[in-house]
Each structure stands twice: as structure tokens, then as C-alpha cells.
Write a protein that binds this DNA or RNA. Structure first.
Lengths: 336, 336
DNA sequence: CCGGGGAAGTCAATGGATTGACCCCAACTA
DNA sequence: TAGTTGGGGTCAATCCATTGACTTCCCCGG
């Protein structure tokens, strides 16, 4: 900046005013300064800017998953790419970290906050009894919780969520219409808030219809557990006629397993994947799936965070209910 | 820090010396200062630190892929998680950005550099005729190129690479031994350096053995193109008896397509996937695959970068050659 | 008893951008 | 003509940690 000031023959303050579109310099000078800056390829040092109270121009994103669970899930990269799109417009950086568990995640937030490294964070995989919202509220670190149910206890946080309950209801609806009465839901990690929501809704829907042979089994989202659970439930005397998998990976593993066991999909057993990805169209039969726009989900979350950073109020935003895409893996229950 | 100085009854300089393990304060004072700092949960502001010449404590990572190509690939998340592991030890942040193409990527590097946002970067997907190494060299931004061949022209950059040529040779070896003479390689993006290396090696290996019906076809890595190319080549009068896919996604799509066309895998056509992921064990037949440790790949790259940041020399490191894991999708060529 | 030397600290400058306080001059008003 | 006003700028302090230069004080040797 000193350089620019010199070459443009003005003071550093004038440069600052000129480049930030603040009054105090004539249009002529402003233009001259702009040209010099451009020519020098100057960009304000984020560090200096931050010291002068402008914030870090960075938001944080922590993924708390063991490294090996991380692989195949397409959801996160899509989410991140949506987030990026919005952040990039405003030249906000995304500081990304992978940790083992929520405890470590909290430590990361603490450190980031103490080091003034980020202006806000995006929190994913909210849990039942989650320590993070409390911590963030306490620190006063602006945050958007992605995928959580609205939470009255932390008015400082924004929430962006999908209506899992509604989606689950529509899946059950569809399966019920097709004559399915024995349904198993191969759910994800037990501690996650959306897992709980899906499980609860499924139970409620079953009760409402008087179905007794409907249940949820929690897993770790891996293909291995997906296959194992499938094998177990299909081995019963009265096996389920419909399976709902909480992600695409388990669904594919499930179909493969079912086929190996001699079950035909969808003639003997229908399958629904909770997450529509390329994977669902890569195997035969094509998987019926719940489709949501993960990229848009990310965009929405990022937009909420920037709004928060601009001093806006915390809000709760619901993205569209995931839609059931019927493909080849669902059909009428045998004998229905 | 002022706070700490006050409470410990010393000057700010003393605090700095104490906390950074520099001489100039007694052990007693050092301890006192440390305790006060701990108690206050103090961490140095990265901004201030950076302003005093310490660097940004951050490395950058840009992914130049269109959002929709991003989804299913398990490689990157694994790579990133390995990178993280090493960076986290040294409390280095990872600034992550997704962009559309290499041009945008260069712009990002320019901006990061001008803003002093990162101390170094990790570059993935090197290309033939790549503008990035030149730019980074010119800027003097420390960088590690991941997956590139050693490049003499840019002595400032480190390179971490896998021996694609050797791996391809071993695949061809294996297939040749099984009696395959007509082989099609469904490659990835044409501009990428490792694609070129694989294509070249395949051609060389074929010539060496006098095989004339061996070729590579480039794609965009998507399941759609993988399926399309599979359909095309299997529709020929003399279809190939072995297919090598440059990633797991295309391999799975390919197997599905082949099966639909009435080809049995591996009886009619053998399939090898260049990337061993959960996917390869989720479909039947299980896919034979080239396995490399992507997480370790990331670790190695990150270690090279930290070495560079510590003032070490640029180096070229080769990670172990990917190994062929023989599963169910490869077998003797019919009639061999 | 004095000077030299080292351990333990303090002072103040530094880095880059922002910003409140102030200054100068031309033009306009009474 | 004196006084006011406002546009166009400048000065210097500020944010926070680091660091080279300097000061104190104590101990030891001569």
C-alpha cells in the first residue's frame, strides 16, 4: 500500500479510502489509485486487515468422521462444493479440517476462535445431545448447523435442515401402497439427529397403520454393515419385503447381498436408498432413491452463514423435502 | 498478551519469550507466564503472528473439477484426510477451494499469494502442458505437485508421484499371462499427466509384445462415459477380452453394462479397476483392482510440503507402485 | 574495589490496513 | 471582507505478536 501511495502521489489513507469506495477522495484520484493498484497486482493482506478488526474472511468446516468411513460418501463433496460456490463470490476462504470425533471437533473450534482464524463455522452431522451448539453459543462464534432439527435452546445459531420426517413418511406411504407390511430401515449412526428423526418417524408411521413388523437397525453407514444387516434380516423366517437404507453405499451393498441370497429385487424385496447419487444408476436394478439437492443444501447453508456474518439474525431454514425417485428397485409386495 | 503480561507482572516481551521457549526469562517466570496463559486460554492471533513475519500457518488446496464430476470419487477425500493428519500435528490449517478449471485455479493461487493467505499449496491433477508449476515457481509459492511425473523445469517444486507406468506394465503383464490379446483401456481425462503416462505405457507394452489390438480411449471419469465406451467397444465384431478402467466408478458402470449386453465377467471379458475402493467389493463379481494407499499418499505429500516450508530442498518422492489385487473380475481369456 | 560478563528483562520499532481527528483551501454567504 | 462550509486529503493511533537494541543487576575474577 505504501508503494501504491507513493506511485499515486497520495497518502496511504487516501489509498485505503479510494480502494474501499469510501468518500474522501475525488473520482480522479480514486481512478488513479485503482489503476496503480491493479497494475501492481495488489491485494490487501488478510492478516493486516484482520488486525484492524475486519475479521478473518474465512469460515471453518470440520468433518468428524474416522478416516476410513470417509471414502465413498458423495454427500460431503457435493455439500462442500455448494458451500464454496457461495463463499467464493465473497472471497471468503474455507478452512477445512478432518478430525476423529466431536470432542476433537470442539477443541478445533476453541482453537480457531482463540486464534481468530475464522469468522464463523458450518457444523454438520448434528447429534442428539450434541455439545457443539452449546460451545459455539458460549464462544459467540457465528455458526450454521446443517441438517439439525430446529433447536430453541441456542438462539444464536442458524439451522438449515431437510424434513427427514416428511421424507420418511412419504417413503412409508409409497411402500405401504405397494402392499409392503414388513419393512426394515437400515439406518445410519445411532447418535445422529437425523437418524433419530427417521427412526422415530418410521415408528410413528408404523403405529399409525398398525404395522407391527417394522423396525430400524442402526449401522455405521459402511457397505460392510449394510451387507451384514441385510444378510441377517433376510435370513429370518418371515423376512421383510422392503428395505430402506440410509445411504447409497449401504443400499448397493444391500442389493448385492440380497441377490446373492437368492432374493430378487424388486420381486422378492424392494429397496430404497436415502441419497440419490450416480451409484444408484450404476447398478442393476437401478435404485429407487430419495433425492435431495446436496449442492443447493450447501449453498443455502453458506448463504445463511454469510447473512449471519453480516449481522443478520439467526434463522431456521428448511430446504425442500427430499423426493422419492422411483426406479427399478421398488415394486409391489409379493402376493399384495 | 497484554493481559497475561499484566497478570504475570512482566513485560509483553517477556511473555513472548516465555511462551516461545526462547532464552531471556528464568524458568520460574516462564512457568508463571505459562500458567497464566493457559488459564486465560490464550492462543496467539494468527493474524498478528503473520504480520510479524511468521507466515500464515495455512496451506492451500484447490480442486479444479466441475461440481458434478466431483461426487463419487473416493480418492480425494482420502487424500485430504491423509494430508490433514500431517498438517494437524503442526497446527497448520488447510484452506480448501473448489473451482471450475485450471485457469480459475491459477487465479486463486495468485490471490492467495497476494493476500498472504497461505504459506504453500498442494497441487493435484497435474496436466501435460500445465500452467501451474510455472506460475508457482514464478510466484515463489512453495508447492508440492501430487501425482505428477518428475519435472526438471521447475526445481522449486516438490513432486510426489506414483509409478503409473510400472503399474500399467504389471497389469498388462497379468492380462497377457491370462491370454488376453485384445485389451481396451478406458482412460480418464485426456489432459492429465497420469492419463498420458498410462496411455503411453500401454502402447509401449503392446508394441513390445507385438499386440495390435490394444488401445486407450479417454473419458471424463463419469459412470456415464464409462458405460458408453464399454457399450461401444463390446459391440465390435471382435470385442476386447479385457478392459482396464481408470477409476472405480467407470469400472462398476462398465461391469453393469457388459452384463446387460450379455457378456459374462470374467468369462467373456475381464475387468480391472484403477483404484481400489469399497465400491470394488460392493458389486459382484468383486472387481480386481489396482490398489494404492491414498491416505498415505496424502500424508507423504503433506510431509514434503512441511519440509519445504521448513526451508528444506525441493524433492521428488515416489510412493510405492500400486499393486494389482486380483479378485473375481479377471480370468483367463476365452480359448486361451 | 572495580570492571567485565552474563542472565533476566524492558523498550520501542515493525508489519499492513483501517479510521477518527485534524488540516487546508476554494467557493459561497452575509 | 470576514466567516462558514465542505470537498479532498493527511497524520497518527490502533490491532497483536515478534525482535533487535538496550538496561539492570548480580556474580566473579583480578
Amino acid at each position: 500500500m505504501k508503494d501504491i501511495a507513493q506511485r499515486a502521489g497520495v497518502s496511504e489513507s487516501a489509498v485505503s479510502f479510494a480502494l474501499n469506495g469510501r468518500p474522501g477522495v475525488s473520482e480522479v484520484t480514486r481512478d488513479r489509485v485503482r489503476r496503480v493498484a491493479e497494475q501492481l497486482g495488489w491485494r490487501p493482506s488478510t492478516a493486516a486487515r484482520q488486525l484492524s478488526g475486519e475479521g478473518a474472511a474465512t469460515v471453518g468446516f470440520v468433518l468428524a468422521r474416522p478416516a476410513d468411513t470417509l471414502g465413498v460418501d458423495s454427500f460431503f463433496l457435493q455439500l462442500v462444493s455448494g458451500i464454496q460456490e457461495v463463499l467464493a463470490e465473497r472471497h471468503l476462504g474455507l478452512l477445512f479440517q478432518v478430525v476423529e470425533d466431536v470432542t476433537d471437533e470442539c477443541a478445533v473450534y476453541r482453537r480457531w476462535w482463540a486464534e481468530h482464524r475464522v469468522d464463523g463455522v458450518l457444523v454438520v452431522d448434528p447429534r442428539t445431545d450434541d455439545p457443539r451448539p452449546g460451545l459455539l453459543d458460549e464462544l459467540g462464534l457465528p455458526a450454521v448447523v446443517i441438517g439439525g432439527a430446529p433447536d430453541e435452546r441456542h438462539p444464536g445459531l442458524s439451522t438449515v435442515w431437510a424434513d427427514d420426517a416428511g421424507a420418511m413418511a412419504s417413503v412409508v406411504d409409497e411402500l405401504y401402497r405397494l402392499g409392503h407390511r414388513r419393512i426394515v430401515h437400515i439406518a445410519g449412526l445411532p447418535g445422529l439427529a437425523h437418524t433419530e428423526r427417521r427412526v422415530r418417524t418410521l415408528r410413528a408411521e408404523a403405529e399409525r397403520r398398525g404395522l407391527t413388523e417394522v423396525e430400524s437397525v442402526t449401522t455405521d453407514y459402511s457397505d460392510a454393515e449394510g451387507a451384514a444387516v441385510t444378510r441377517r434380516v433376510l435370513g429370518r423366517p418371515a423376512p421383510p419385503t422392503a428395505l430402506i437404507y440410509d445411504n447409497d453405499v449401504m443400499a448397493v451393498a444391500g442389493v448385492t447381498t440380497a441377490t446373492e441370497l437368492g432374493f430378487s429385487v424388486p420381486a422378492d424385496v424392494s429397496v430404497v436408498a436415502w441419497e440419490d447419487s450416480a451409484l444408484c444408476r450404476m447398478v442393476r436394478p437401478w435404485l429407487s432413491a430419495l433425492s435431495r439437492d446436496s449442492v443447493e443444501f450447501g449453498r443455502t447453508a453458506a448463504r445463511e452463514l454469510t447473512a449471519l456474518l453480516d449481522g443478520g439474525p439467526a434463522r431456521t431454514v428448511r430446504v425442500p423435502v427430499p423426493q422419492v425417485i422411483v426406479r427399478e428397485s421398488t415394486g409391489a409386495a409379493r402376493g399384495a
